[in-house]
Simulated scan of single mutants.
Amino acid sequence: MNKVGNWRKSSYSGNQTNCVEVGALADGAAVRDTKDRAAGYFVADRGQWSAFIGAVKADRFVR
């Protein structure tokens, strides 16, 4: 398994714990729940992560 480095959460989250964190991988990203870090994380390869970020920026998700 790839080593995840530098877990980060959005600065918009402030002190909230109902967030997700993103960690850097050599070939993509890992995502975990801030309030339950022990539950593990899922990974996305570079193409999957790029597609996800593109969808977020294009506002293709229901709020």
Rank of each mutant, 00 (worst) to 15 (best):
G47H: 08
L25Y: 05
V4F: 12
W7V: 08
A29P: 05
R63C: 13
A55N: 10
D27Y: 03
K57C: 10
A29C: 14
F61T: 15
N2V: 01
T34A: 04
T17K: 10
R63W: 11
A24T: 13
S11H: 06
R60G: 05
Q48F: 11
F61M: 14
D36C: 12
F52D: 06
K3M: 02
R46V: 11
Y12R: 07
A55W: 07
S11Q: 02
D59R: 15
V31N: 08
Q16R: 13
R63Y: 11
D45M: 14
D36F: 04
A29E: 06
G28A: 09
W7Q: 05
E21A: 03
A26N: 08
S50T: 13
T17R: 03
V56I: 09
A29I: 11
A38I: 02
F52A: 09
N15A: 12
F61P: 14
A55L: 10
M1V: 01
N15E: 13
F61E: 14
G40H: 05
I53W: 05
S13C: 15
F42Q: 09
A58S: 02
R37E: 06
Q16L: 13
A26E: 10
N2Q: 09
V62D: 15
V20E: 02
G14A: 04
A29K: 03
S11A: 14
A44P: 00
S50A: 10
A51G: 12
A24C: 06
V22D: 03
L25K: 05
N2A: 01
Q16P: 00
R8S: 14
A39F: 07
V4N: 11
A29W: 01
R8C: 10
A44N: 08
Y12K: 04
A39E: 04
V62Q: 13
G47D: 10
I53R: 14
L25P: 05
D33R: 09
Y12P: 00
A51Q: 14
R32F: 09
A55D: 09
S10Y: 05
N2K: 02
A38Y: 02
R8A: 11
N2W: 08
T34P: 09
Q16A: 14
D45E: 06
D59P: 13
T17H: 08
V62L: 10
A39I: 07
G28W: 09
I53G: 04
I53S: 06
W7M: 00
N15R: 11
D27M: 07
A44C: 12
A51Y: 03
R37M: 12
N6S: 12
K9S: 06
A44H: 12
A58H: 01
A55P: 10
Y41R: 03
A58K: 02
D45V: 14
N2Y: 07
V4L: 13
D45N: 14
K57M: 15
A58Q: 01
R32P: 10
G5I: 07
D33W: 08
F52E: 00
W7E: 01
N18C: 14
G5N: 00
A29T: 05
G47W: 00
D27E: 06
V31R: 04
G28N: 03
V43G: 07
A26D: 13
D27S: 11
D36M: 07
Y12N: 07
E21I: 05
R63L: 14
R37I: 01
V43Y: 02
A38V: 05
S11K: 01
K3F: 00
V62K: 09
S11L: 07
R60L: 11
K57T: 10
W49H: 07
F42I: 15
S13E: 13
